[in-house]
Design a binder for these strands. Structure first.
Length: 472
RNA sequence: GGCCCCGUAGCUCAGUGGUAGAGCACCCGCCUUUUAAGCGGAGUGUCGUAGGUUCGAAUCCUACCGGGGUCACCA
């Protein structure tokens, strides 16, 4: 699609031509900056009471995007914004080159343009710390206006926005515009960055080795999910984008590392929703000589640490929920959790048909013919998961739905697996890993049969992985 | 993939068969301490696209395109 300038954009193109005709560079190569917007204000305020004269002689050069324009004839006020925040520029025709001032007054300089201003700090009569501008320079001409949001700060400090940019489609397709306009969105990415840093710091301090394993894989595995398929031209071979890191990380334990982790993307060719992204970031870690109790301890400390690093406390607000990572997380058995929330003890219903009937009896609709394991999953997902707001481990799953975990000690039916839930969503999954290569092979074969029977892509048997397991 | 909903100005939206509207933005004019500045002037549009019904369609019908929700699947 070629660009079809709308009326506003045509106006800006015309202004760009006028500026060029005046010999003004639209996108000059160099900028000067001595202070961020926030630093300029802070520098002034630090001296303002103790030495007002010194404060008003602070020379600054600030750069940013014009976010507010108020032209009053021979004096104009602009707000510019950089990552640190905003600062007001006060431009008076008497204080600067007149021709430059007229560029602003005659609106050849627009909202959204990037500019540089040099001058001294001051506080206006209305009380706003500002740059009294002596030199003013265009750094980049904006040809497409950003969506306009007007803000008003109420007396209690809350900011009311008028004319918000709220269309979800446009916001996601033009993330840059959303970020430029909606302040809180920037904080999301900052928090994400701090989260990843904290994850890494914690795992490193626990003696884990960070690794990267293949994303392009000849054979995918480690989870029940459909993959993306791609093709290597020179090898003339189809490759899969990984659906988990598991099998490669476990190979590294065979290789002799006691503890490894990876933070990265997984790709699953399945449904999309606010909970499910075709490419998502996760952390997986493996540690030798601990069982699922050890992993739960570690998980709990990890999350508590990350929340503290990112927020400074242990409490977060999410989707209307207040979640506290401070207290010890409850660990409840899946069977008890389902019994508690539905009254159904799945041990009373050994086959799919009877369990399905029991589920219908409590008023749920389920598609007929599902496996017993899927029905248990239904009970968990529909009745237990949404109620687990505070961090909670659900432990000891039926072997049927957890093929890669070792048996519990107390019966033959359950395995040492946990998932944990926060704010009504599943956030993680782990188990005491099966490492009997003979067992493992049988599981692969079972899975192969399951997938081909569901008419999906057959999962090829990962012989290399089995060889690795036999070395253990 | 099934079902439901949405698409009107740059942004947010109103308009359910009879001349396309509002606020802000944009444009023109005035204004040397403003801050949702103010005052005066001007409505800037492929009503998602293509057909159909009708004297007449933003409005009703069909298909398509784009998007959202939900179910199925999954984390």
């Amino acid at each position: 699609m070629t660009w079809q300038p709308n009326r506003l954009e045509q106006e800006r193109l015309e202004k760009a031509r006028e500026l060029e005709a005046l010999g003004i560079e639209l996108y000059p190569p160099h900028a000067e900056r001595t202070h961020t917007c926030a630093q300029a204000i802070a520098a002034f305020e630090a001296l303002e009471t103790s030495d007002p004269e010194a404060a008003e002689s602070i020379e600054v050069a600030v750069c940013g995007r014009i976010r507010r324009v108020n032209i009053k004839g021979k004096i104009s006020f602009l707000h510019i914004e950089d990552e640190s925040g905003r600062v007001q520029l006060m431009l008076r025709i008497n204080d600067m080159d007149e021709k430059t001032y007229l560029l602003v007054r005659d609106k050849l300089i627009d909202m959204d343009d990037f500019v540089q201003a040099k001058g001294t700090m001051m506080r206006t009569r209305a009380g706003e710390v500002s740059v009294l501008v002596r030199e003013f320079k265009l750094l980049a001409k904006s040809l497409s206006p950003l969506p306009v949001i007007k803000q008003r700060r109420l007396e209690d400090g809350t900011i009311v926005e008028y004319g918000e940019f709220s269309d979800i489609e446009t916001r996601y397709r033009q993330r840059y515009a959303d970020l430029a306009v909606n302040h809180d969105v920037r904080e999301v990415f900052r928090k994400r960055s701090r989260t990843i840093s904290a994850l890494r710091a914690f795992m490193d301090s626990e003696g884990f080795l960070e690794v990267e394993t293949p994303i392009l894989q000849p054979i995918y595995g480690g989870a029940a999910a459909r993959p993306f398929v791609t093709h290597h031209n020179q090898l003339d071979q189809d490759l899969y984008l990984r659906i988990s890191f598991e099998l490669y990380l476990k190979r590294l334990l065979v290789g002799g590392y006691d503890a490894v982790y990876e933070i990265g993307r997984d790709f699953r060719n399945e449904g999309v929703s606010y909970k499910h992204n075709p490419e998502f970031t996760q952390i997986e870690f493996y540690k030798a000589y601990i069982d699922y109790n050890g992993v739960m301890d570690l998980t709990e400390r990890l999350l508590r640490y990350v929340v503290q690093q990112v927020t400074g406390g242990t409490v977060i607000e999410y989707q209307g929920h207040t979640v506290d990572f401070g207290p010890e997380w409850p660990r409840i058995r899946l069977r008890d959790a389902i019994r508690q929330h539905t009254g159904i003890d799945y041990m009373d219903y050994p086959d799919a048909a009877s369990l399905e009937q029991a589920i219908r009896d409590i008023g749920d609709q389920v598609t007929p013919g599902q496996t017993w394991g899927k029905l248990v999953d239904h009970l968990l997902g529909k009745h237990v998961e949404p109620k687990l707001i505070q961090p909670t481990f659900v432990i000891d799953y039926p072997r049927d739905i957890s093929p890669f975990a070792k048996r519990v000690s107390y019966d033959d039916f359950h395995v040492e697996r946990f998932e944990f839930f926060i704010a009504g969503m599943e956030m993680g999954n782990a188990f005491t890993e099966l490492n009997d290569p003979r067992d493992q092979e049988q599981r692969f074969l079972d899975m192969q049969r399951l997938y081909s029977s569901e008419d999906d892509e057959a999962t090829p048997l990962d012989e290399d992985y089995l060889r690795a397991m036999r070395y253990t």
